[in-house]
Nucleic acid binder design. Sequence first.
DNA 1: AATAAACTGACGAACGTTCGTAAGGGAGGA
DNA 2: TCCTCCCTTACGAACGTTCGTCAGTTTATT
Lengths: 193, 193
Amino acid sequence: MTSNKIREIALSHFAKNGYEGASLADISAEVGIKKQSIYNHFKGKDELFLTVFRDAAEREMQFTESYLLSGSKPLLKDLLYNFLHSYSKRYEQEDDTRFFLRMAFFPPVHLRGEVVEYSNKHLDTIGKLLEQHFVTAAHAGTIHPEVTAATASAAFIAVLDGMFVELLYGNMESAALRLNASWLVYWRGIRNN
Amino acid sequence: MTSNKIREIALSHFAKNGYEGASLADISAEVGIKKQSIYNHFKGKDELFLTVFRDAAEREMQFTESYLLSGSKPLLKDLLYNFLHSYSKRYEQEDDTRFFLRMAFFPPVHLRGEVVEYSNKHLDTIGKLLEQHFVTAAHAGTIHPEVTAATASAAFIAVLDGMFVELLYGNMESAALRLNASWLVYWRGIRNN
DNA sequence: AATAAACTGACGAACGTTCGTAAGGGAGGA
DNA sequence: TCCTCCCTTACGAACGTTCGTCAGTTTATT
């Protein structure tokens, strides 16, 4: 399906060059068609972008939920640690995450509203899913009483974002280094004993 | 001086819209001149951008050094905590930091080399300046022996970046909330006792 | 025969850039 | 003081290019 091919390639271009930096000419060239042919599948650049963005947002959401909704209840320590590593691997392999992250930070001005809405939804979901685990862990005494579930959750998302930054800015290796350091300090900071 | 006015306004436009999103027409209009007149002061868009970027990078560097080179040696806890808060306030008030951060993440493709070079220099400087304080603190027994100076430093920069993300993506209030959480967990994670 | 999806061709608008030109001010000599 | 030369800075007009978009036509599939 050409439409899907356009989606895929458009996503990679948006991720790499941003909305303004990505041109329909370049995208269509890589697809192997003329840029005018894109209009057989999408009304215009905006619709193409929003379609691609919504798809990516949904896949991000699904990944998160599939991880944090797990019926099995692993140890908090394992859950969090694996989540960080899975997400970093995901970032490395999937254009989705790079694209989603870049657009969440710097959306095209005239589509800002829609983009921000989806981004917030995603963050809220992560936050709520996490909080459940932290509350459970707090009751079980896994977390030090000085650290509330809300605090542990907020700090964890900060660790996640810090990892994203290093992935965006540095590379896999430097991100792994930072992740190890962040995780060591973070877990020491919230654990009980 | 018109040249400086161009610099200032160009910086704010680059910060808000990115390199491709900022047009010489918009910039010059806000300055109060025609876009052709910019060429009396700069060879072109690239030179304007690089000039502005180098200036911003230098000011960022100066801010960092003035803070972390302080001849007086405050307590590590105070130094770090105040640094985080000062930087968040700086981000709020200065276009410099927003601009620098955005361009470090997503530089214009054809100027990537130069931009990355300056960004790395800045990060290295922060890292080295921090490491000194952490080494000192480690010798003084302020930091828990399980946490090396390098680890504490890397984790702290991650906290800083996490704060940047929330500033970029959220707002001052949400950033303050996250900062409090991150800081509480971080300090618990590295302190001795 | 009908329909989807590719094509060619052209459009106005915006982009960064270059040209020649004119206004203004300071320096130096008559 | 006046005149001239030069330098700076602004301008209008236009450049070639690229942008996203629209209309009409051909090709391929069913």
